[in-house]
Design a protein around this nucleic acid. Sequence first.
DNA 1: CCATTTTTGTTAATTAAATCACATTTATAG
DNA 2: CTATAAATGTGATTTAATTAACAAAAATGG
Lengths: 212, 212
Amino acid sequence: MTPHNKKIPRMSIERLPIYYRTLCNLADNGYLRIKSAQLGKIIQIEPTTIRRDFSYFGDLGKSGYGYDIAHLIQIFGEILEVNETQGLALIGVGNLGRALLINNFRRNPNLEIVSAYDADPHVIGETINEVTIQSLNELKEDSQTQAIKGVISTVPSHAFQEVVDYLVACGITSILSFAPEPVHVPKNVHVRYLDLTSEVQNLLLLSDIAEV
Amino acid sequence: MTPHNKKIPRMSIERLPIYYRTLCNLADNGYLRIKSAQLGKIIQIEPTTIRRDFSYFGDLGKSGYGYDIAHLIQIFGEILEVNETQGLALIGVGNLGRALLINNFRRNPNLEIVSAYDADPHVIGETINEVTIQSLNELKEDSQTQAIKGVISTVPSHAFQEVVDYLVACGITSILSFAPEPVHVPKNVHVRYLDLTSEVQNLLLLSDIAEV
DNA sequence: CCATTTTTGTTAATTAAATCACATTTATAG
DNA sequence: CTATAAATGTGATTTAATTAACAAAAATGG
């Protein structure tokens, strides 16, 4: 009955944002409770996987009843730290960076791009969505005066390692890169890659191969 | 020595685009051969994983020698169908859609957004990067006259299921969605989700949890 | 208050992926 | 041509994730 003390599997953690978002939607629509079977239908995850995932975070459900949505939101929200704004820096304000900045996680009140940087003097000084684009070397100081929890980079591959080295020197430990080439970082620094081209190629590939 | 006839693991297929891109880079820089250990260093994948992955596609290497880069490119390129242009349709030309269209996979000559659609009358008729934005109901006809291998959707969650139903009716079988809510589709249709918010949340989350 | 139904949480079983370990093959140097 | 070194390809093992199966717990309905 006590919460697990086993290591929480990576995949269970990866699913937390989906759970959280879906539960918030349900709450917004007036739902108060949910059972794993219903939730599974909605997000297309096996109920058993959901129950196991939830169990890592405590004894959250009641037999014959299900889960209290508000309670789950409370617990998962704490883990995701939705109550403190997570400041993000954007590096590279080209087309994609611009789109990200204009959008700025509007749907997610706790994620916010608080500063943006680019190498191109033409865009430095421009203000988008209340954020003024700066030269990258301002980041060091910025990261001391304001909390920057992570960096989103649209910097192209050839310049990325250099930028990352600088980020590491600034004390940044979380980086999301839209450039696919892997970079070398110390063990305490986490880089996540989001490779649009591979995603599309895999989409087409898996469709092709699926019929075999 | 004959190529495997076992089912190729999903993860091995997912890595093909990375292999392909990296090998092309190496070839561009004049390299002719590579061993799994070197390649592993570059893309940060265990050599053993690379060798096993490669083995699914034939007997591609030579003991004591390594792999012939041109040969690998040839084989993987065929699987990825890099020689035929893969036409894509973009649905939803907001900020993100616009960025994707402006970029249009310039680095990847075989991926190309060939048509774009939106519901907003203000953007219909506008031309970006030689693609004129149309009303979504034009897609049915377009998909008959030109090959559309897949769809990229930036349509928001609340409208997405409806759009997907229409796409399915048009015969589309591959969809990449930037909206996270899962939709229901027939088994032969593949939807891949790319959830930016979850990616960022997981980035921060995994950093937080890693120290434990 | 008891019997029945529902639904959880978890042990056990399964499936899938990654890695180890090494026999085999090929290249290379003498 | 032979011996040595290098590197592959793959059975065997390990690790991780998912799913099945079910006992225990709580709710519901008479």
